[in-house]
């Protein structure tokens, strides 16, 4: 457990030190959100209707932005091999790195989401559910993204490939995240969708690290 926490702390520190981490993710989030009214038009009614989806899509893209760095740096400087030699199983290492990735991307995105919603004339009744579903959904993004990152870790310029691999797998998270907010605002109850999101999170925690660890192992052979 201490190994896990140490690794999480180390990765967060690294992301912070590069200065870029959280800042760029949020910047990208805001920029994509800004493009939508410019593309769709400034009508408040339309913006309010698409706000949830736009915020979710933008968050999804922003969370993907830093994915290719998840294992790449450690792979290149050899610290991944050192980690593999550690007594901690690879699955735990992956879980730790995904946790750190989530803390530096998903968490700030979830906190920033309602503010983006405000800019898009989103119904304030949905703000809390939006943050809540994002807190549940973005870890799934980090975990599934980890599989893609692990598969492409040895590939030169794997960024585009990574997004091709990962985006189709993100669809269920996006769908349940958006529907939960919409149904919550409509008064139909967000609960079933939140349960489904939670189930997906548990499933991802249980399964994704296996796949990522297997992919990392084969890429280090």
């Amino acid at each position: 457990m201490t190994g896990f926490m140490d690794l999480v702390r180390r990765d967060i520190r690294l992301a912070m030190r590069q200065g870029s981490g959280i800042y760029w993710t949020l910047m990208f989030f805001l920029l994509t959100i800004t493009l939508f009214p410019l593309g769709v038009g400034p009508e408040q009614a339309i913006l309010g209707r698409i706000a949830t989806g736009v915020v979710w899509v933008a968050a999804l893209l922003a969370a993907m932005l830093s994915l290719d760095r998840l294992f790449q740096a450690d792979y290149e400087d050899g610290s991944l091999e050192l980690l593999a030699l550690a007594p901690v199983p690879m699955e735990i290492i992956v879980l730790a790195k995904c946790t750190a990735h989530w803390i530096t991307t998903g968490l700030p995105l979830a906190i920033a989401a309602p503010f983006m919603g405000m800019m898009l004339n989103m119904d304030p009744a949905g703000f809390l559910i939006l943050t809540g579903t994002m807190l549940l959904g973005t870890p799934v993004l980090s975990l599934i993204g980890g599989i893609g990152a692990a598969l492409t870790v040895g590939v030169r310029r794997g960024g585009v490939l990574l997004s091709l691999l990962v985006l189709p797998l993100y669809v269920p998270t996006l769908i349940f995240g958006v529907i939960a907010v919409d149904e919550g605002v409509n008064g139909l109850g967000a609960q079933p969708h939140i349960m489904l999101l939670s189930a997906m999170l548990l499933g991802a925690i249980a399964l994704a690290p296996w796949a990522s660890a297997a992919a990392l192992r084969l890429n280090m052979e």
Partner: peptide, 28 residues
């Protein structure tokens, strides 16, 4: 050999995900 293993992992991840994707899309 490496490509094969990586692709196999992806295919399995995809096969786990496809029913979820299909279900979610139907729901949506």
């Amino acid at each position: 050999e490496r490509a094969g293993k990586a692709a196999a992992i992806l295919a399995l991840v995809g096969s786990v995900n496809l029913p979820i994707i299909h279900f979610s899309v139907e729901w949506w």
